[in-house]
Each structure stands twice: as C-alpha cells, then as structure tokens.
Simulated assay, not measured.
Amino acid sequence: MNIRPSAAIRQNYNEIADMCRKTGEPVFLTKNGEGDLVVMDIGTYNRREKMLKLREELLAVEEDRMRGSKGYSVEEVTAMMRNAIREAEGHGTAE
C-alpha cells in the first residue's frame, strides 16, 4: 500500500503518476496524518469500474434467480444470439 502526504502530489506528481501506472495500485494521500484522497491511473480506475459494474449485474441476476426468476437454456440463449446477429445484419429474425 502506497501512502503519501497530500503535499507529495504537488511536489512529485510525475513520480506518483508513474508509480500508479507501473504498479496498477492506488496511492493514498493523507492530510494532517489522516486519510484524505486516493489517486490511481485512469486505466486502473476504468478496470475497477467495469469490474464493479459486472459484479453488480451478476448480483442482480443471482438475486433474481433466488427469487425464482426463469432462466434460459443454452439452446434458448443460442437462438436469441442468432436472432440478434441476423437483426444486426439487417436480415430480420431467424424464425
């Protein structure tokens, strides 16, 4: 875990930015000895956001499943995907 005082971002921006990019880890900034901010490179931030969104979607699907929501068989999903592909190609539905 990288912890730096908040003044370090002003004094060593390039060093902190390089560290974030190389390690893929956030840098925690403190102010008056207390946690204040977290800095990370944009690639790491985007990956984390995508992962969180995917987890939220998976959790919602699992909650639906536990409530008895109908699932789909492999054959049904395959048919839906083929229909979507044909529609996207402009050929209408596969049925």
Rank of each mutant, 00 (worst) to 15 (best):
N46H: 12
K70V: 02
N46I: 15
L59D: 11
E34M: 07
D41R: 01
R47A: 12
R55Q: 13
L37F: 08
M66L: 10
G71M: 00
L59Y: 13
R21Q: 10
L59G: 14
G35E: 09
E62Q: 14
R65A: 02
D64K: 07
E25D: 08
K53G: 12
E56Y: 10
L54Q: 11
L59I: 14
K31I: 04
I42P: 08
T44F: 01
K50Q: 10
V38M: 04
G35R: 10
L58M: 07
E25M: 04
R55D: 08
K50A: 09
E62C: 14
G68N: 00
L59V: 11
D36Y: 13
M66A: 08
D36F: 05
P26I: 01
I42H: 11
N32R: 07
E25A: 04
L29I: 01
V38H: 06
G35S: 06
E25L: 08
E49Q: 12
N46G: 12
M51R: 15
E56L: 08
M51C: 15
G33E: 00
N46Y: 15
M51A: 14
G68W: 00
S69V: 08
T44Y: 02
A60D: 06
G68Q: 00
K31A: 11
V39I: 04
L29W: 01
T30W: 01
G71Q: 00
M51T: 11
L59W: 14
R21K: 15
P26S: 04
L54H: 11
L58F: 09
K50N: 10
A60I: 07
M40I: 06
L58Q: 06
K31N: 10
L37Q: 06
V61F: 11
G43W: 12
K50R: 11
I42A: 14
V27C: 01
N32P: 02
E63K: 09
K22H: 02
E62F: 04
R67Q: 03
T23L: 01
E34Y: 03
V27P: 00
K53A: 15
M51N: 14
Y45L: 09
K53M: 12
T23I: 03
G24F: 02
T23M: 01
D18Y: 09
E25R: 08
N32W: 03
D64I: 06
K70P: 05
Y45R: 04
R67Y: 04
C20T: 00
L29P: 00
K22Q: 08
E34T: 05
D36C: 03
L52I: 12
L54K: 13
M40G: 02
E57K: 10
F28I: 06
K50M: 13
R67N: 05
K22A: 12
M40H: 05
Y45N: 03
V27W: 01
A60N: 10
E57C: 09
R21P: 08
M40N: 05
R55C: 10
V61L: 13
K70H: 03
E63M: 07
I42Q: 14
T44G: 01
Y45V: 06
L54I: 12
Y45M: 07
N32H: 04
G43H: 10
M66V: 06
A60R: 10
N32S: 09
A60V: 05
R21I: 09
D41Q: 02
T23R: 00
T44Q: 04
E56H: 13
M19F: 11
L59K: 10
R47H: 07
N46L: 08
E63N: 09
K31D: 08
G35M: 10
T23G: 03
K50D: 13
D18F: 11
P26F: 02
R55L: 11
D18C: 07
